[in-house]
Computed example of a mutant assay.
Amino acid sequence: MTNLVLLVLCLGLGAALRHWQLLPPTAAGVLNQLVVVVLLPALAFLHLAEARPEARLLLPILMPWLIFGVGWVFFALLGRRLGLARGTVGALILTGGISSVSFVGFPIFEMLYGPAGLAMGLVMSLAGSILISVTLGVVVGSWYGAARPTWRGMVGNVVRFPPFLAFVAALVAHLFGYRHPALVRGVLERLSSPFPVIALLAVGLQLQWRVPQARARLLAWGLGYKLLLAPLVVAVVYVGLLRQHGPATNICLLGAAIGPMNTAAVIADRYGLDPPLAAQMVGLGIPLSLPLLALLGWWLQ
């Protein structure tokens, strides 16, 4: 419950600061740069360097990759059909395809399924949402953020992206059986702890509560996929095709229905992928997902 209250408070505070012009217009960009250059790399290395995914947790790990991949295809085809700008398509892929598992999902999973649910949420976030953000998320940002994208330019953007470098360092550390010393862990925890507050404030500073008519249709498509089609895709694949049932499948269904991840909006802003749309996808998508999650959680129980 603390995370949910903090989420609403930070979004509202960011929107209020923007409305009353208490911060300069460039404040959101500065906060986004702070997230990308400092906070997200520290968070990625803190968790990914020691992550040890297990075979029994395969379903929660694969779910974020499934909805991101399907979302990429869905929004690419939609953009071609509707004649959308490249940046708009990229913003929809990022925010429509990545769930805010750690910030919204953790308290819900733990409340419904106890410590086992929280453990599944952790691997869903570490090996799913966070890993997608620093890898494929950067690929999408580079590809759709350039007027004339090239593979060379995209690869260059990926390898220069600070969270990706932290991921590579974490991967190398993992291969050598690295474990954080107490001092390193303490520093990384303190360094990454402001991440959710700063990221959500940045989103709130870019959030416009009034939805222009031209953007309403885009939000309907984006949130329609994120909140409705994504869990339906997981249900079809996991339950219909793989015949999987039980707590792991239930948590995957809930995870797919969670609103967009705030980091996705940060990446969209960094690469110029329709930042206002990305901010509204997060700012409206997370609150709208809460009653849906409550209903879905009740039904699964």
Rank of each mutant, 00 (worst) to 15 (best):
M1C: 10
C10L: 14
C10S: 13
L17D: 12
W20E: 07
W20I: 06
P24E: 12
A28Y: 03
G29E: 15
P41D: 04
L43C: 12
H47M: 15
H47L: 15
E50R: 01
A51Y: 05
E54H: 13
R56G: 14
L66T: 14
L66N: 13
W72A: 08
F75H: 07
T88E: 08
G90K: 11
L92N: 03
G97C: 12
S100T: 10
G105S: 00
I108Y: 02
F109V: 00
M111F: 08
G117M: 08
V134A: 13
G137R: 14
Y144H: 04
G145L: 06
P149V: 13
M154P: 05
M154D: 02
F164D: 08
F164H: 06
A169K: 10
V172E: 10
R185S: 15
G186L: 12
S192V: 12
S193C: 04
Q206C: 08
A214L: 12
A216P: 12
R217M: 06
L218W: 03
L219K: 11
W221V: 10
Y225F: 11
L232Y: 01
V236K: 02
L241N: 03
R243E: 02
G246D: 00
L254Y: 00
P260K: 12
N262K: 00
R270F: 04
L277R: 10
Q280V: 05
Q280R: 03
A294W: 14
